[in-house]
């Protein structure tokens, strides 16, 4: 066993873990802001709007994330037009491509989660809000959004974990996050066992922390939705 190689490379793992967390939380934060309005549009009374949002979510939920990442990172270079525009310096950077892909992907999943929660809100809550004469904006911010978010907590928690795990794909386009670091160490030192086991341990720890935090949040904010023991 060569655990001293891992100890020597601890700074690399630390940097990798930081990048993993950065990728996961940036994507989640951006997608959260995008998914909130999209969830309302997904349930819009206008069929055109509804179908365009559901086509977007179908395309991104129906294909593997790896394909999406390769389409954006390797694929866009095929078009000379894009290569001549001012956005190319950004689009040729792996970090930007990875974040763009992750945001587009997790927004599609989050939109469906939020839209589903929105549909499950009892009509009575909305009727009460209307009876009190709340404006449409107030109805959304005071009634619909809070109710939607508490109802989506369990599924959204899963989506956060999925996003965290999906960041490991960033290693396929040269980013040195946790998995990328492990891969680099296996290649540099000709050891196959210890680096990946260490990476696995890191992911397991982060997942454990997120799951525990989510359980506390859920008990605090969505406790009233739980089945009551009589």
């Amino acid at each position: 066993m060569n655990w001293n190689v891992i100890a020597e490379n601890a700074p690399l793992y630390l940097a990798g873990t930081k990048l993993t967390l950065l990728l996961a939380f940036t994507s989640l934060a951006a997608s959260f802001l995008l998914a909130l309005p999209l969830a309302f549009l997904r349930n819009s009374a206008h069929p055109g709007i509804r179908y365009s949002v559901s086509t977007y979510t179908l395309l991104f939920r129906g294909t593997p994330l790896l394909v999406q990442l390769f389409l954006i990172y390797f694929g866009l270079a095929q078009f000379g037009l894009i290569r001549e525009t001012f956005i190319w310096p950004w689009l040729s950077s792996p970090l930007v491509c990875v974040l763009l892909t992750f945001i587009l992907n997790t927004t599609a999943y989050s939109t469906e989660i939020f839209a589903g929660a929105l549909r499950s809100i009892p009509v009575g809550e909305l009727e009460a809000a209307r009876a009190y004469g709340l404006s449409r904006f107030k109805q959304a911010t005071r009634i619909l959004v809070p109710a939607m978010l508490t109802r989506s907590l369990p599924l959204y928690g899963n989506e956060m974990i999925m996003m965290l795990h999906a960041t490991s794909l960033a290693s396929t386009v040269t980013l040195m996050e946790t998995t990328g670091v492990a891969r680099r160490i296996t290649l540099d030192n000709y050891i196959q066992f210890e680096p990946y086991v260490t990476a696995a341990g890191i992911y397991l720890t982060i997942t454990f922390v997120i799951v525990s935090a989510f359980q506390i949040v859920q008990r605090r904010f969505a406790g009233y939705l739980e089945p009551r023991s009589t």
């Binding site: 974990i161 965290l164 795990h165 490991s168 794909l169 696995a200 992911y203 397991l204 997942t207």
Partner: peptide
């Protein structure tokens, strides 16, 4: 469920 698919595959 605590470890990514890709890492499992490499493991």
């Amino acid at each position: 469920r605590g470890i990514p698919d890709l890492v499992w595959m490499l493991l």
